[in-house]
Amino acid sequence: MSLSVAVAGASGYAGGEVLRLLAAHPDVTITTVTAHSNAGQPLIQVQPHLRSLAHLTLVETTPENLSGHDVVFVALPHGKSGELTEHLGDDTLVIDCGADHRLTDEADWAKYYGGEFYGAWTYGLPELPLRAGGRQRDNLLGAKRIAVPGCNVTAITLGLAPGIQSEVIRSDDLVAVLAVGTSGAGKSLKTHLLASEIHGSAAPYAVGGSHRHNPEIRQNLTAAGGEGVSVSFTPVLVPMSRGILATSTAVLQPGVSAADVRAAWQLTYAHEPFVHLLPEGEFPKTADVLGSNSTLIGLAVDEAADRVVVISAIDNLVKGTAGAAVQSMNLALGLPETTGLPMDGVAP
Rank of each mutant, 00 (worst) to 15 (best):
L140G: 05
L140E: 08
L140W: 03
L140S: 06
G142S: 12
G142L: 08
A143M: 09
A143V: 09
A143H: 03
I146W: 02
A147N: 09
A147I: 06
A147T: 10
P149V: 08
P149D: 07
C151R: 10
C151S: 15
C151V: 07
C151W: 11
N152S: 09
N152W: 02
V153G: 00
V153F: 00
V153N: 09
T154N: 03
A155D: 04
A155V: 09
A155H: 03
I156S: 00
T157E: 01
T157K: 02
L158P: 06
L160G: 00
L160C: 00
L160I: 13
P162D: 04
P162Q: 10
G163C: 08
S166N: 15
E167T: 14
E167N: 15
V168Q: 07
I169Q: 01
I169C: 01
R170V: 02
D172S: 13
D172R: 10
D173I: 12
L174G: 00
L174K: 03
L174R: 00
V175Y: 07
V175M: 05
V175P: 00
A176F: 07
A176T: 06
A176D: 05
V177G: 01
V177H: 12
V177D: 11
L178I: 07
A179S: 14
A179M: 05
G181T: 11
T182N: 08
S183G: 08
G184K: 04
A185M: 15
L189F: 15
L189P: 09
K190A: 13
K190G: 03
K190P: 01
H192V: 12
H192W: 14
H192Y: 15
L193W: 03
L193Y: 10
L193T: 12
L194M: 13
L194E: 14
A195V: 13
A195W: 11
A195C: 07
S196R: 13
S196C: 09
S196Y: 12
I198T: 15
I198W: 05
H199K: 14
H199N: 15
G200P: 09
S201E: 13
S201K: 15
A202N: 04
A203T: 15
P204K: 05
P204Q: 05
P204V: 06
Y205Q: 04
A206C: 11
A206M: 09
V207G: 06
V207W: 04
G208H: 02
H211R: 04
H211E: 10
H213V: 12
H213A: 12
N214Q: 14
E216I: 01
E216L: 10
E216C: 05
E216N: 03
E216R: 00
E216D: 09
I217G: 01
I217D: 03
I217V: 15
Q219A: 02
Q219D: 07
Q219H: 04
Q219L: 02
Q219T: 00
N220M: 06
N220P: 05
N220H: 07
L221C: 11
T222D: 07
T222V: 07
T222S: 11
A224L: 10
A224H: 05
G225I: 08
G225N: 12
G226W: 02
G228V: 08
G228S: 10
V229K: 00
V229H: 01
V231I: 15
V231D: 02
S232Q: 13
F233V: 05
F233R: 02
